[in-house]
Amino acid sequence: MKNDTLERKIQALQRGDGTAFDYIYEHTHKSAYFAILYIVRDKMYAEDLLQETFVKALRSLSQYAAGTNFTAWLCTIARSLALNHIKKYRREVVTDFDADAYKFGTGEAEIPYLFDLAARILPEDEYEILMLCQIAGYKRREVAEMLGIPIGTVTWKNNEALKKLKREIKKEDGA
């Protein structure tokens, strides 16, 4: 039902109804944001790229195949922009970017340690599910719809991510 509403809002926006934007943004931006944050690990850059993602996506809304999965389409754009951002910095800065990507933002924009740890040790799908379930406040059913995967997979990956984080923190505490 929620996907239907989102599709209706997208169609409304395509028809020029600007009031539909709020709904679309509120129901999709966190998913795109965490897809970006996983890659850039810097809040300030992630926000800029989120803005760029929405502007690009909504300006080319005609390319979205209605009735498929808008959130997944948006996240594809988001990842592409984030990866381009990383590539740009790889060209400009000679350093161990993989290990210290988050350091290329400003000091104020560094993300809290636990989130950085999650981005470092979790695979992308587990990270995204963890963020959507635990931080963005979505229900597992909603996350399953967004990502187009079974709810059982969401539950399993969410639990796996939590266990891995817990293990890693225990390991660090013991070190």
Partner: peptide, 21 residues
Amino acid sequence: LKEQACGVLPDGHVKENIKRE
């Protein structure tokens, strides 16, 4: 995670910037 979420989630100004753009 929840306690630290406020340092991670995007600020409200992003939405307004998008709308303006």
